[in-house]
Design a protein around this nucleic acid. Structure first.
Lengths: 195, 195
DNA sequence: ATCGTTTATATATAATCATATATCGGCGCA
DNA sequence: TGCGCCGATATATGATTATATATAAACGAT
């Protein structure tokens, strides 16, 4: 549908889920309806600017128009705070990257569009939310299954099964309570400050 | 009508007039109709997000969603180019360039990857934000330390220390209030370096 | 299997957006 | 002054699209 605004929609969903608020809650805070939010996040339609600012404000985000030449500097600032609360193991990061590469390359032809969407959305979230070691292992096996069967054509059924499996991992990661479970990664990015 | 999005519309008009392009020209570049642009700028209606990104791109602007807490830092960057295109002293420019060359050449082997990333990101920002003379001096000493020890292998610890030191300079520059600070290059740090 | 919660899907209404036309302001000229 | 022209911006009127209301489906948990 709309490719131009897709990354914005994804940012919104990431921010909402990162703050652990439901679409209903966000609906209450922003004044939009829940169904509207759903469609925006799924990219089935493009929001109006008014809706966008409402949702953004409800998520403590602001919309800024920046000259392109300043984008590297701005990206630095945005990244600097996002990396600080990134708790993923490098294993998970690599695995997700592997799956995203696979999806970019073979995803279009492999299964139904709905399955591909499920797949992509799930991965987008697994970029940010940690899995347990067991779950990581499941993810790895799924990746292996995909890659070994990529030469011959993969059946739609199998593709769908894997997509749903990965969505289950996504759901597990989303609904886990962050404070207790997180595997606590190898390195600690210490001390980010502000003054 | 729409007060939430009015400042965005004003920004668009300001950008267009600043670049001395007519609504017709912008219409051609963006794909929107001239009448549409007129209404957007006058605020008689709120554009859809798609229209906004089209117009923005045609004006070399980009839409970013930024956490509110990072807005001061981002405002610093945005202001830095609008007030005067370059507020950096040539000393700072040269120094940053020197450090970037060093990093490109020796950075990979010198320390941990995390430290190298910190280093690189910090430098990227210091390309755009001014330092005080004292801070510049600290930066210069850091550069000297790096370059004198580049022949023998530098210890990971020392590399990390320097990376963190430079990040502190970065943070100071990012979070500084622009109005009171930056005494405007009283001294010249004499520099023998060039490229 | 069922409940409670979260997210996705119909349908009616209100909005944007494109096409076409009108207004405003300036400049030359009789 | 008044007329005609021109570039730029603003204003009507139908097609297309977003949005709200109401309903269904998916999921985890008990």
């Amino acid at each position: 549908m709309a490719y131009k605004t897709e990354h914005i929609a994804q940012q919104l969903r990431a921010a909402r889920e990162g703050q652990k608020v439901s679409q209903r809650e966000l609906s209450a805070r922003s004044g939009l309806t829940q169904s509207h939010i759903s469609q925006i996040e799924r990219g089935t339609m493009e929001p109006g600017l008014g809706s966008l600012v409402d949702v953004a404000r409800a998520l403590d985000l602001e919309i800024v128009l920046a000259p392109k030449k300043l984008m590297p500097a701005i990206r630095n600032i945005l990244d600097s705070s996002s990396t600080s609360n990134d708790v993923l193991t490098s294993d998970q990061r690599k695995l997700v990257a592997r799956l995203e590469r696979w999806l970019a390359q073979f995803g279009d032809g492999a299964g139904t569009r709905a399955d591909a969407d499920i797949f992509k959305d799930s991965l987008a979230l697994l970029r940010h939310l940690p899995l347990t070691p067991d779950e990581l292992d499941m993810l790895k096996r799924a990746a292996d299954r995909l890659e070994t069967s990529r030469a011959d054509k993969m059946s739609r059924q199998e593709m769908g099964a894997i997509a749903r499996e990965i969505r289950q991992l996504r759901n597990a990661a989303v609904h886990r309570d962050r404070d207790d479970a997180v595997p606590r990664s190898a390195y600690a990015l210490d001390e980010e400050d502000d003054a």
